[in-house]
Simulated scan of single mutants.
Amino acid sequence: MSLLPESASFEELVQDYFLAMRGSGLMLSALDAELLTSWAEQGVPFEVVARGIARSAEKALWDARPGEPVLRSLRACRKQVEAEIKKHRERSAGAGSEGSRRTARTRSWEELRHAQLQASLERLAEREPGLAPQIHRLMEAVLHEVPTEFARMEAQESLVGLVLLRALPFSERRGLWRSARGEAVDQQYMSFRARRLARRFRLLAVVRRRLGLMDA
């Protein structure tokens, strides 16, 4: 999921992912760096923190004004990230415990996202019959497997979004591309990896908005 090398540290992975979701910036503020250090000291996996950042970015994207970053600070993600950390700890503590079967049976975030995506696609096929053939193929070839990792889930959602984008008329595809580029902010100080991830995030967000995917 991250485009950094495998040797990158937890802090590097989180910073790169956050700046990509934010859409601009070179480094974290002192207060954000302090918060990141506290998460690193807790020993939680990068994917857990990334889930919280992704959820915060998705919620904030629709409220951001043109030219403004989606997320102003890593601290803006704190509530979502710490909620994900809590869920992760509950699942870890409950796994294999006789007295915590209810926790162990709780579906993971990836499983919930997968089910939500399938339900959204089924509704989309009913609303727009012209996309139904592509949706049915995606259901059979891509969504037959429930992802167990955050990276695989992101890859699956990206593939679905790009396939459906290509299925739209050219004029509409062009409009969505322009809309995604128009929402980008100053990225000149971002790494190539972060810029690439930021562009993908915005394009797929525009596509999901157009198709009504992942609506609550």
Rank of each mutant, 00 (worst) to 15 (best):
K79D: 12
L31D: 15
C77W: 00
R127G: 11
E82M: 10
L31C: 10
M139R: 08
F46G: 01
E58V: 03
A54V: 14
L159R: 02
L117I: 04
S73G: 05
G52C: 04
E172R: 03
A20M: 04
A93D: 08
A76H: 03
S120A: 07
R107D: 15
E154K: 06
M153H: 02
E154M: 11
H88A: 06
L124V: 01
R89H: 03
A93Q: 15
R209C: 02
A184E: 13
K86Y: 12
L162A: 01
D16P: 08
K86E: 06
S171C: 07
R101T: 10
E157I: 09
F150Y: 08
A30L: 08
L159W: 09
Q156H: 10
G43K: 07
R51W: 00
L204G: 00
S24H: 03
E126S: 15
S92F: 12
V48K: 02
A20F: 04
W109R: 02
A125V: 06
L165Q: 02
E128P: 04
L121D: 03
R178F: 06
S9H: 06
R199W: 13
R127C: 14
A167V: 11
A198K: 02
E122P: 14
G175L: 12
R166W: 14
T103Y: 14
Q116I: 13
R89Y: 04
R200I: 15
R55W: 08
Q15L: 13
Q116T: 04
R174K: 13
A8I: 11
A155N: 05
A198S: 07
E110I: 13
D215H: 13
T103Q: 15
L74Q: 02
S9A: 15
E12Y: 03
G96N: 06
L71C: 06
Q188Y: 15
M153F: 12
P5E: 00
L36F: 15
G94E: 09
L164M: 06
L197E: 11
E41W: 14
R101Y: 10
K59L: 14
G67V: 09
S100V: 08
E82H: 06
T106R: 10
F192P: 14
Q116Y: 08
R91G: 04
L124N: 01
K59E: 12
A104S: 10
F10W: 12
G99H: 07
R113Q: 05
A30R: 11
K86W: 13
R55N: 12
S24V: 04
V163Q: 01
W109E: 01
A155W: 10
A20T: 07
P129L: 12
M27V: 15
A64C: 10
V44A: 04
M21G: 03
A115K: 02
A167F: 03
L168H: 01
I53N: 03
R196I: 10
Y17A: 13
L3N: 07
Q42P: 11
R174G: 07
E122W: 15
R113K: 11
G161M: 09
S73N: 08
Q134D: 14
S179L: 15
T106P: 04
E98H: 07
L121F: 09
F150E: 01
F201C: 02
E111R: 01
R127W: 12
A132R: 08
A125C: 04
